[in-house]
C-alpha cells in the first residue's frame, strides 16, 4: 500500500533521488511509487530541490500518461489497445471493460475500488488480447476471463507481485 502523502515524507523521497543525472523524471517516479500519485504540494518542493521552475515540473508531470496527480483506485486495470490486440477482439474487449466497470478509460469506479486505463502495447502481442491487473500481465483475455479477473480479489493470485517492479 502507498504511504500517505506528507510534506516531510515527500521531501525525503525527493532528496533520495535528486542526486542522479537528469533527476526530474526519476524523482517523480519515486514520488508516485511511494505515495501512489504525485501530490500538487510536491511540485514546489521538487522545483526548489532541483533548481527548476514549477512550470518545468508541471510540464513533465502532465506530459507522461503514467504519472498521476490524484490517487488511483485500490486496484488498477489496464487494457491493451494496440493493433495486435485489435486483431483478436481488442476493440470489443475495450468496450466490454468500460461497460463492465461502468467507467471510461482513465476513470475510477465510484466506489474507488478500480481504476481503468488503456495502454498502447504491453509487448504480449502473440498472446493478445492482453490486460494488466495491478501491474501483472495477463494474456489471451476474452470477455469471460476479464469478468473473472474483475470478480477476483484485489490481487489475482498469491504470486501476483513476483518479479514485477524494481
Amino acid at each position: 500500500m502507498p504511504t500517505e502523502w506528507s510534506i516531510e515524507a515527500g521531501a525525503r523521497v525527493i532528496a533520495d533521488h535528486a542526486g542522479v543525472r537528469g533527476p526530474l523524471l526519476p524523482v517523480l517516479h519515486a514520488l508516485q511509487h511511494e505515495f501512489g500519485y504525485v501530490d500538487a504540494a510536491a511540485i514546489p518542493l521538487v522545483a526548489k530541490r532541483l533548481n527548476v521552475s514549477r512550470a518545468d515540473v508541471h510540464g513533465v508531470l502532465t506530459f507522461y500518461s503514467d504519472l498521476r496527480t490524484a490517487p488511483s483506485g485500490a486496484r488498477s486495470i489496464a487494457v491493451c489497445r494496440g493493433e495486435a490486440c485489435q486483431a483478436v477482439g481488442g476493440h470489443a474487449l475495450a468496450d466490454h471493460a468500460q461497460e463492465r466497470l461502468g467507467v471510461r478509460f482513465g476513470e475510477t469506479t465510484a466506489d474507488g475500488s478500480t481504476t481503468l486505463d488503456q495502454v498502447f502495447c504491453l509487448g504480449l502481442c502473440a498472446l493478445s488480447p492482453a490486460v494488466t491487473v495491478d501491474g501483472r500481465a495477463r494474456g489471451r483475455v476474452d470477455e469471460a476471463t476479464f469478468d473473472a479477473l474483475v470478480a477476483a480479489d484485489a490481487t489475482v493470485s498469491p504470486s501476483a507481485d513476483r518479479g514485477v517492479g524494481a
Binding site: G123, L127, R136, R138, S157, S159, R162
Partner: peptide, 13 residues
C-alpha cells in the same frame, strides 16, 4: 520461462 509472456499465461503457477 520467467518471460513476462509466459507469466501472463500462468508460468508462475
Amino acid at each position: 520461462p520467467g518471460d513476462s509472456g509466459a507469466r501472463a499465461v500462468g508460468a508462475d503457477d
